[in-house]
Amino acid sequence: MNTTPTPRIAIIGAGPGGLTCARILQRHGIAVTVYDHETGPDARDQGGTLDLHEDNGQIALREAGLLDDFFRLSRPEGQEMRQLDPAGTILFHHVPEAGERFKPEIDRGDLRDLLLGSLEPGTIRWGHTLTAVEGPDEGPRQLRFDDGSTAPADLVIGADGAWSTVRTAVSPARPEYTGISFLEAWFHDVENRHPALAELVGQGSAAAADGDRGLFAQRNSGDHIRAYIIQRLPRTWIRDAGLTPRDTGAIRALLLERFRDWSPALRSLLTDNDGLYVDRPINALPVPHTWAHNPTVTLLGDAAHLMPPLGVGVNLAMLDAGELALAVVRHDTVADAIRAYEQTMLPRSNEWQKTLDHGAEELISTELPDFAQDATTTA
């Protein structure tokens, strides 16, 4: 059992979960180092928008002392939601009330910048791709990176996402394809260049499905819209058609055929995008995913419980991060902190995994969301 008075804590992954954990640890005077494989904070686009829920993601931000900053950056109007049928008829329309803050939207890049800016200088070690967690279970651990460098650690926190390297130290599980594939499309300067689409989506999101395929479009800040073309297909559907993701015209022709009976307004999400499509097959970890207690290694977020993208992933990652950081603060040893954290996190994540098992199918279901079943439809 590790009884180091001041444990060397290494977080692998500078996503929302890893950064939230680091921020809360530092607020309590505990040193931490975050390692990330990217070359710097601007190495890539951080993705679209996400909503942070009052009952999980916002709890972590409050513990991080960043909730007020989040509200200043967030877009409560992004809680607007429209559900349509393939003919373009609105079946459900939620318009947030003034002051509604249950799950306001924020761009992923803005959230990451907020968290990065809250950390002490030098916390992040960019350009460190982890290849292995070595050393005995009881510690100390040795982190090995792809450039041959190493770093010691008494606590290793895997916040390194779906294809986590840290996970291999505690579990053999690997993500599996759900049978549902996303094709991402971007639209820029939408009020000027895509006004009909801007009207269709509104300030939040719009979705439609027919049971086999679906479309989901969501307003981002900066006058952008990001859309996802959702289909039940083999993982290799683009390659099977003799194409690559760069073959925009040929992929568009396939999509137009598959969505041939949909309304022209919705089909504009297939034809009017700016730039290339991005292929995003949806993967999930086996259900339930658990592992034997390890006194020096634990996981949070997608590394622990990758699920279909149904609005809980980042929220659970940040809740995990807050609870793990506080467990470290409140316990005398790393092993006790990990045990206390996992006693809460694993049952919760397993329940969510069971609830969302095969949940990717909901993304193409014609059923209205539960919260819309009894709501009055507005146009």
Rank of each mutant, 00 (worst) to 15 (best):
T6M: 03
R8C: 08
I11R: 06
A14N: 07
G15M: 02
P16S: 12
C21R: 02
L25N: 03
R27A: 08
D42G: 12
D45P: 05
Q46K: 14
G47R: 04
H53T: 08
D69R: 14
D69I: 09
E80Q: 14
R82I: 09
Q83N: 10
L84N: 07
D85G: 11
G88L: 07
T89I: 12
I106E: 08
D107M: 07
G109L: 03
T123D: 03
R125G: 04
G127H: 05
V133W: 03
G135P: 05
G139T: 05
F145P: 06
A151C: 06
D154G: 10
V166K: 11
V166R: 11
T168D: 09
A169K: 01
V170E: 00
S171I: 06
R174H: 13
G179H: 02
W186I: 01
F187T: 00
H188K: 09
D189Y: 07
E191W: 09
E199M: 13
G202F: 12
A206S: 12
A206H: 01
A207R: 03
T236E: 15
W237D: 02
I238E: 05
D240R: 15
A241G: 08
G242A: 12
L243Q: 10
D247Q: 13
T248P: 06
R260Y: 08
A265M: 09
L285D: 03
P288K: 08
L299K: 02
G322W: 05
G322F: 02
A337P: 03
I338P: 04
R339V: 09
M345D: 00
L363R: 05
S365E: 07
E367D: 14
L368G: 01
A375R: 11
